[in-house]
Amino acid sequence: MEYLSIVFQEVYKILFLLVPVLVSVAMIVWLDRRVWAFVQKRQGPNVVGPFGLLQSLADALKYIFKEIIIPSSSNKVIFILAPIVTMTLALIAWAVIPFSATQVLADINVGILYLFAVSSLGVYGIIMGGWASNSKYPFLGAIRSAAQMVSYEVSIGVIIINVLLCVGSLNLNDIVIAQQNMWFVIPLFPMFVIFFISALAETNRPPFDLPEAEAELVAGYQTEYSGMMYAMFWLGEYANILLMCAMGAILFLGGWMSPIDVYPFTLVPGAIWLILKILLLFILFALVKAIVPRYRYDQLMRLGWKVFLPLSLTWVVLTASYLFYFNLLPVN
């Protein structure tokens, strides 16, 4: 009985985390479209609800009532599994995100590795969807996205090493607390820029949305999907984008810390600061989508392997030598 009550407590906590995440995913889709529209001097979704806030809800309802079509020549089990995998992976990563020093679902020692592992697993949803559809465009999209995500993960991993050198711990709360005096965005600014661009590529956002480049591949890996299964891909994608923003906020922008350590600011709970930072990064994501045209595929690969990887590796050597020379290495 005692065991059951512990389980219920955990389930309650998980729901308390996941429901806000899902709602904010719906809101973030609306925000994305709105920002995109304003950059292009349009109105964007503004009909359903105040300022069109309920647009995503209406879309979700529409998807629920649409028929799910499973192509007859597809590999059915994997075809159905693919959106589930995408969405699950996008949601389980939120378990380690700290909203304040104590408000974290799982305060594990290797938090940042867990985040990195889950985001690198995200590629499977896309490959599975693309392969199981058994048609040309989804397969090409899946192959493209797999190559793209694997390439940019390498530079994200190296950037994480940069931050870890300054922190000396893999725990996400330790990473946040290490930025008490100075956010890592200041000493590691070039790394922040590279992280941001790699995050765009990792989440298949424009200008790196080649897996679903509509001019070439119809809709890439999600061509054959319809109804709620398509919506799940879509939700998973946006949850992943939010996650990358949260990762950027934690690694470089001080996570749940208030920007200035003065009285009225420290009263605001850490969760609010984290959400504000995530929103800031997300608006940057949305602006990039509106401003920058799509990359060519060979340029994308060149950028990942020939520019970002050497740059971030050099920066690791630089950071390590600096910390070693001035005896600043975090030793405990």
């Binding site: 290797v110 592992a117 690198s120 697993l121 499977y124 490959i127 993960e153």
Partner: peptide, 13 residues
């Protein structure tokens, strides 16, 4: 975690 990152995230892909 390293097993997940290296084997599942890269090698198996």
């Amino acid at each position: 975690m390293i097993m997940l990152i290296v084997y599942v995230g890269a090698v198996a892909v």
